[in-house]
Simulated scan of single mutants.
Amino acid sequence: MLDLKICPGCGEFAEVPRAEQGRLVCARCGHRREFRRLPLFALTGPSAAGKSTVGPALARLLGDRVVPLEQDVLWTGGLRDDVDGHPAFRSTWLRMAAMIQQSGRPVVLCGTVVPPEFEPLPERVFFSEIHYLALVAEPGVLARRLRARPAWRGWDEPRIAEMLEFNDWLRAEAGRLEPPVRLVDTTTAPLDETVATVCAWVTDRLPRE
Rank of each mutant, 00 (worst) to 15 (best):
L133G: 03
T112S: 13
V136N: 13
V125T: 12
N167G: 07
L191D: 10
E15C: 10
R145S: 08
I160T: 11
P150E: 02
R37H: 04
G50C: 12
L109Y: 14
D64C: 12
R32G: 03
P68S: 07
E70V: 00
S91H: 07
W201I: 04
R208M: 04
A148M: 03
P8F: 01
W93K: 09
T44H: 11
I6W: 04
E165N: 12
T197L: 14
E117P: 06
E123W: 04
F166T: 08
P8H: 03
A57L: 13
P179N: 15
T203W: 02
T76G: 01
S47N: 12
C10A: 07
T188H: 14
R65H: 13
T197E: 15
T187E: 11
E178N: 15
A98T: 10
Q101E: 11
C26A: 06
G50P: 06
D3K: 12
A59G: 15
E165K: 13
G50E: 11
E209P: 14
R147D: 05
V66E: 01
L61D: 14
V141R: 13
L24W: 01
W93G: 09
V73A: 12
T92W: 01
E157Y: 07
A19F: 00
P122T: 06
W201K: 14
P8D: 00
C29N: 13
D72L: 01
L69F: 06
F89P: 10
G104W: 10
M96F: 10
R144G: 07
L121D: 05
L109M: 10
K5R: 12
H86I: 02
C26P: 10
W155D: 03
F41I: 11
M1W: 05
G9P: 11
G9V: 02
R95P: 01
C7R: 00
A98M: 01
T203H: 10
V136I: 13
T203E: 13
R90Y: 01
L191H: 15
K51V: 00
P179G: 14
P106D: 08
C199P: 04
T92N: 02
L191M: 13
L191C: 00
G77F: 04
L191F: 15
W75Q: 04
H131F: 14
L135S: 09
D156F: 08
A161F: 07
L133C: 06
V184S: 11
A189Y: 08
P87G: 09
P116E: 14
V136S: 04
E20S: 04
A48M: 01
R144K: 13
C110N: 13
W75K: 02
P46K: 02
L109T: 02
R37Y: 05
A57S: 15
F35I: 10
L170R: 00
V108H: 09
A88W: 05
P120G: 07
C199W: 05
F41N: 08
V54F: 11
Q71Y: 06
W169P: 09
G11E: 02
V136H: 08
C110V: 12
S103H: 04
T53N: 09
L38H: 00
Q102H: 05
A48T: 05
V73G: 01
L69V: 06
R124I: 04
G30Y: 05
P17T: 05
P120M: 03
F41R: 00
E34P: 06
A49F: 05
G50Q: 11
A27F: 10
